Amino acid sequence: MTYTVNCSILLTELPLLERPAAAKAAGFDAVEFWWPFEASVPTDAEVSRFENAIADAGVQLTGLNFNAGDMPGGDRGLVSWPARSAEFQDNIDVVAGIGERLGCKAFNALYGNRIDGESAQRQDAIGAENLATAAAGVASIGGTVLLEPVSGAPRYPLLKAQDAFDVIARVRRESGAENIKFLADFYHLAVNGEDVAAVIEKHAGDFGHIQIADNPGRGAPGTGQLPLGEWVARSRALGYQGYIGLEYKEPAGTAFSWAVRQGVGG
């Protein structure tokens, strides 16, 4: 089983740039990150420090988010946010550059919350255009744009799998872009009341990425009640061949105890 450690939610006791090496020390060879900078267009020095931390740790960067705004403050993406559309577009080249230099192919674009004073129709039109632009921006490096439902964000409009698949279908229909896929975060889907097993049966072969956390609590596998092992195994059986993103909350000292017990590693 090939896991990738999300270093934006795990190992947070350490400074961000020390986390790739800590993931490596824990036995994993791959990491993923939310957007690791404050600005959509960070300085060259900031980008270099991030890239060097990945390379020096000897791990593969398997996933990177586009800038999603102030996540702790409640933002959930710039894709459909009209006032920040140009900022999102500026972010695309930076993301693609990091991906090209580090061999990363998967890029998660959080869709964005509904905004007061903006119609859903206008936001969705801008969202589709920006996703198409992002897909074109990473196509030259063989990249794929990922789109996911999320939980815990009342104004985020993509709550169920079909919500995201509808947007993906629109982008493909309007732009012809094929390199946009569904990110199946089993935790978010379960919290939002989705029949996760049914989604797997219907779509697993088309998943662009899988992320896992247990529920309740968004903790490590085995701390809650979700049949994560069964869902992952079934997704594999139905054709999913990618990484499994570890995107849960757990103190560093016990973050990977479940993996040790199961005899699995990176």
Rank of each mutant, 00 (worst) to 15 (best):
D163P: 01
D124V: 10
V191T: 09
A83D: 15
I141K: 00
R76S: 03
T4L: 14
A25S: 13
H203K: 09
A132N: 10
A136F: 10
R49E: 07
D166G: 06
S8Y: 02
G266H: 05
A55M: 08
F28I: 10
L10S: 00
A22I: 05
V79C: 15
Y187C: 09
D195F: 11
V41K: 14
A177E: 11
P157I: 09
R170F: 05
G127S: 09
A161D: 09
A86V: 14
A204Y: 00
Q211A: 06
A252W: 04
L17N: 09
L14G: 08
A83S: 14
A237D: 12
L183W: 09
P251N: 07
I180G: 01
D163A: 00
K249M: 10
E32L: 04
G224Y: 05
S8K: 00
L14D: 06
R122M: 11
L110K: 07
N192R: 15
E194L: 11
G222P: 02
D70N: 15
V94Y: 02
F107W: 01
E250G: 04
V191N: 06
A83Q: 15
A198D: 13
L61W: 00
L102I: 02
Q225H: 10
P15Q: 13
V199C: 02
Q211G: 05
T144M: 02
E100T: 13
H203N: 05
F182S: 00
V150L: 13
V59L: 03
V59M: 04
D44T: 15
F88R: 04
A39P: 09
G193K: 08
G217Y: 10
E18M: 12
N108Y: 12
N108R: 11
P227S: 04
A255R: 01
F207C: 05
A204D: 02
D116Y: 13
Q225N: 13
H188L: 02
W258V: 07
Y240W: 05
G253H: 02
A153R: 09
